[in-house]
């Protein structure tokens, strides 16, 4: 794969992908680039802000309210759970339990604990409990590339 970059003044950032044949790899690449442009509207103590998907580690549903967790900070998310899943179904976000959606781009490792529970370790060393039921969904994200 060749990567060509060039500066073009007074034009929005444009990514062009040229391929001899549209393969799963190409689809994965397109999804990855599209996901970089996804942003969330969040609330930080009354202050509205936009968060890029890359900044999101996981999203938690606490008593029907959605909270988005970054490397260190937490914000209230301005979206419903159903809307969220629909909008980010092709990104690296994946449900890992009934109340938690994880960004697999920040996943460092999946571990099986002694009591056979599953644990996801993120690159900020935060640990999340993974329900076995959703393990195949995490695997699917990695298969998509």
């Amino acid at each position: 794969m060749q990567i060509i970059t060039k500066e073009v003044k007074d034009k929005p950032l444009t990514v062009t992908i040229e391929y001899p044949e549209r393969t799963e790899f190409v689809d994965g690449l397109i999804r990855k680039i599209e996901s970089l442009d996804i942003s969330f509207s969040a609330d930080d103590n009354g202050r509205q802000l936009k968060l890029k998907l890359a900044e999101v580690y996981y999203i938690e549903n606490v008593e029907r309210k959605l909270f988005v967790y970054g490397a260190k900070e937490v914000y209230r998310l301005n979206a419903g759970a159903a809307e969220l899943e629909e909008r980010f179904k092709d990104s690296g976000l994946v449900r890992i339990s009934r109340t938690c959606i994880m960004n697999t781009d920040h996943l460092k490792e999946i571990r099986q604990l002694r009591n056979s529970r599953l644990e996801a370790v993120l690159d900020n060393d935060e640990k999340l409990i993974v329900s076995r039921k959703y393990l195949k969904d995490i695997k699917r994200v990695f298969k998509k590339g």
């Binding site: 996943l107 490792e109 999946i110 571990r111 099986q112 599953l118 393990l135 195949k136």
Partner: peptide, 9 residues
Amino acid sequence: VKKDIEYIN
């Protein structure tokens, strides 16, 4: 489960 974890890691 073991195989899936191995694959993901």
